[in-house]
Amino acid sequence: MEQFFTQFPTVLGALNEGFLQTLRLFIITLVGALPLGLIISFGSMSRFTPLRALTRLVVWVIRGTPLMLQLLIIFYIPGYVLPNGSPWPGGESGRFMASAIAFIINYSCYFSEIYRGGIQSVPIGQQEAGQVLGMTKSQIFFKVTLLQMIKRIVPPMSNEIITLVKDTSLARIISLQEIIWAGYAFLKGSHGYSGLVWPLFFTGVYYLIFNGLLTLFFGWLERKLDYFR
Rank of each mutant, 00 (worst) to 15 (best):
N106C: 10
L72M: 13
E128A: 04
P89D: 12
G125N: 15
T145E: 09
S93R: 07
K137T: 13
P78I: 03
M97C: 10
Y193H: 14
E2K: 14
W60L: 15
F75G: 05
V11E: 03
N106E: 07
F141L: 13
R152D: 12
S112Y: 02
P83L: 02
S99A: 01
I161N: 00
L216V: 15
L225G: 06
Q126I: 01
F5P: 07
I161H: 00
L187A: 09
T65D: 10
L200I: 08
F210C: 11
G125F: 06
F201E: 04
L187T: 07
F26K: 02
G85I: 02
G192N: 02
T163C: 11
S112C: 06
N84D: 12
A171W: 00
E160H: 08
I73Y: 09
F141Y: 13
I173S: 10
L196F: 04
V132D: 12
G43T: 06
G183K: 00
Y115E: 04
Q21Y: 09
L146P: 10
L170C: 06
A14I: 09
G91M: 04
G192E: 11
L20I: 14
I209C: 08
I77M: 14
L214P: 02
L69I: 15
Y227D: 08
L54K: 08
F75Q: 02
I73W: 02
S175G: 00
I74M: 03
I153Y: 05
L23S: 14
L23M: 15
G219Y: 09
Y227M: 11
V144Y: 10
V144P: 05
K166M: 06
L34P: 12
R229E: 14
G18V: 00
I73H: 03
S169W: 09
N84I: 07
Q120L: 15
M157K: 10
L213E: 13
G43I: 00
F5R: 12
A33R: 10
R52Q: 15
D226M: 12
S99M: 03
L67W: 04
E92Y: 04
N211K: 13
G94H: 07
L146V: 07
I150N: 11
L51I: 14
Y184D: 14
R223F: 05
I174C: 05
V122R: 04
G117T: 11
I162H: 01
V31W: 05
N211I: 10
T145N: 08
L225N: 06
F217D: 05
T22E: 07
A182I: 04
L51N: 09
S112K: 01
W60Q: 11
K151Y: 09
T10I: 10
Q131Y: 08
Y115F: 11
S138H: 10
S194V: 13
N159E: 14
V61P: 13
L225S: 05
A171M: 06
I114F: 07
S194Y: 08
E128H: 10
K151R: 15
F4A: 12
A53C: 09
G90C: 00
F218D: 11
V132Y: 04
L221S: 00
Y110D: 03
G204S: 12
F48W: 01
Q148C: 13
F96C: 04
Q127W: 08
I140R: 14
L200E: 06
L214G: 09
L208V: 09
